[in-house]
Design a protein around this nucleic acid. Structure first.
Lengths: 337, 337
DNA sequence: TACGTTTCCGAAAACCTTTAAGTCCAGGAG
DNA sequence: CTCCTGGACTTAAAGGTTTTCGGAAACGTA
């Protein structure tokens, strides 16, 4: 805690110039003599002057601040998106005002008003899942970009991971490794993520002229479910040579139980996870081949498009962002590992 | 995107009163007739007027915004703290300006300036570990509270989990369950958390007149290390009946390997973890008894003390926050589970 | 000297809100 | 009838900065 903050008028009088001149000197404008500029800069440094962003924003109408409205900060998925956005903003002296609505629509409305009253230049809305969510953009005086969870309104700007494409990519990898009898264990069907990933699987298999082995098994996104599903699957479809799992948690459970049941991974059964949640994917034995949704990149991209939208160059629609397959030992060809 | 934002002068003219009267009506002040107030409120609603927080803040000198400076947003630990703080603020119409310095001191300085220029009312600094960190509070015009990672300066206000006490509590629980031959596996010794937890263990054992079995094993905070340590420990100290682990990751690795080596958990060996990282602690078999540091509460407490500090009622010093032992199956008495 | 041009600087308005101080009027007390 | 009180409202200042415009000085040219 220190003394009162210096204003530009303090700087001006210390430098012996007018406020206007001080402002021009500090902002690097041209019509001020070099010697004068020096004096002003020295004065500012001496007083450790920091321009008041409130005053500046009041005048310019721009706060260089964006709101980040999330439904679920805790979430595994919101964080990297947030981080990517923060990253993109940090580069350009933007600041992020963070609000967590905790999945409550009323709370969300409340935070929205608070952000608007603080005159944010734009808004990023981060969903807690890839399920489409109600739009908040109606009649808002600032642009909005949705990340991870898209808006229901197709005229909004949304960025989502390309789950269908990524799942197909993962399955194609299994096929390339020579696997032909592929089963699928995933999360609850009310998650669009689960449905999309299943569709990707179907597309890839169809293209190869193959059929999925057994029914898709849906359950919670948990390791426990992965173990349970493994028990069932190894019993009912003993001839499988690969499993595509809807999450790393499920996959971790699966490999654990497969091991215990004496099935070697990857020699007997190859396993692919999803999310690249490193505490799981790199710590299972063997480490998991898995899909990384590049959420940080997604967040950064969303932020960059928000910039564009602030400048009036919006790009409406749902943009599918490419994911990346991280190949580890759980899908190596037999005999390699 | 909609029309230009309404100002209080728009409201005033629509209601047929002066700006001052409109302001008073909107802020619930007394010297305005009920009928007039009605008219103003109706006008404000019609224009969906939102007061400009910049103008208000410029005048009052208070922005009702605090900065949250973190070294490590990604971190397991920063998030709950952040969340607790956000929670405490949300209740009182405060907003959080989030900055992530990514462990870089220069970046931190940069963000600090940005926050100050935005005239935040206060600052919370969240550390990435419980190791003390350099103070930023020197000559700052706003109060600062440190959470998780304390400031090196004892005159600052810091909130940290009581690792020593929590470790002692965990070990006392093991003793109460009848365990007597307790070993310790933990993280790198340059983490204060590892040293504090070891000290808690020592204190509890000393009080019971016992000695730790074998040396403390230090390694990375990983599941892999837990497995490795288990191999070594089961070999060198086969008579242990309990292990206190410095993190859930280590504990998860330990129980996995113990299982594989035919030691029953908890019947033969009880295991206690630390962190209550649920993806691990509830998914191991058996589920882990573990220490929950109550980080969300810690964050909330830090925020509340920041409020107090803003009001001039600072409480200097390092405050140790109590942790909580979450008892699950990994420490049940033999024969119970 | 008169005039135009360039260079540097200052006065003042604008952004939006809150609040202290002031105006006006009705009604009650003397 | 005058004076005072208090209610209801308005005026104006303040908060810190940027920017437009105008002014003044210096300099070059006719």
């Amino acid at each position: 805690m220190a003394t009162k903050r210096a204003t530009i008028s303090d700087v001006a009088s210390l430098a012996g110039v007018s406020i206007a001149t001080a402002s021009k000197a500090l902002n690097g404008r041209q019509d001020v003599r070099a010697a004068t500029r020096e004096r002003v800069l020295a004065a500012a440094a001496e007083l450790s002057f920091q321009p008041n962003a409130l005053a500046r924003g009041l005048l310019s109408g721009q706060t260089r601040t964006v709101g980040l409205l999330t439904s679920d900060s805790v979430g595994r998925f919101g964080i990297p998106v947030l981080l990517g956005a923060e990253n993109a903003f940090g580069a350009g002296e933007m600041a992020v005002l963070l609000c967590d609505a905790r999945g409550d629509a009323i709370r969300e409305q409340y935070h929205l008003r608070a952000l608007l009253s603080r005159r944010v230049d734009g808004l990023i809305v981060v969903g807690e899942s890839t399920n489409p969510r109600p739009s908040v953009s109606k009649d808002l005086p600032v642009p909005v970009v949705y990340a991870y969870g898209p808006s229901e309104d197709p005229d909004d700007v949304s960025f989502v991971p390309d789950d269908v494409g990524a799942a197909a990519m993962a399955v194609n990898h299994l096929l390339a490794m020579g696997r032909r009898r592929i089963a699928h264990v995933t999360g609850p069907t009310h998650y669009k993520a689960a449905r999309d990933r299943e569709e990707g699987l179907r597309l890839a298999l169809a293209e190869a002229g193959l059929e999925q082995v057994g029914q898709t098994l849906s359950g919670p996104w948990s390791q426990r479910w992965g173990r349970h599903a493994a028990e069932m699957l190894l019993m009912s479809e003993p001839e499988i040579d690969a499993v595509f799992c809807g999450s790393d948690q499920v996959a971790a459970g699966f490999v654990e139980t497969a091991r215990e049941r004496g099935r070697r991974v990857p020699d007997d059964i190859a396993v692919v996870g999803y999310d690249n949640w490193e505490v799981l994917s790199t710590e299972t034995r063997p480490a998991l081949t898995t899909v990384d949704m590049n959420l940080e990149l997604l967040g950064r991209t969303a932020a960059q498009h928000l910039f564009a939208a602030i400048d009036g160059k919006a790009t409406p629609g749902v943009h599918k962002m490419p994911c990346q397959l991280v190949i580890r030992d759980s899908t190596s060809p037999p005999g390699v590992s």
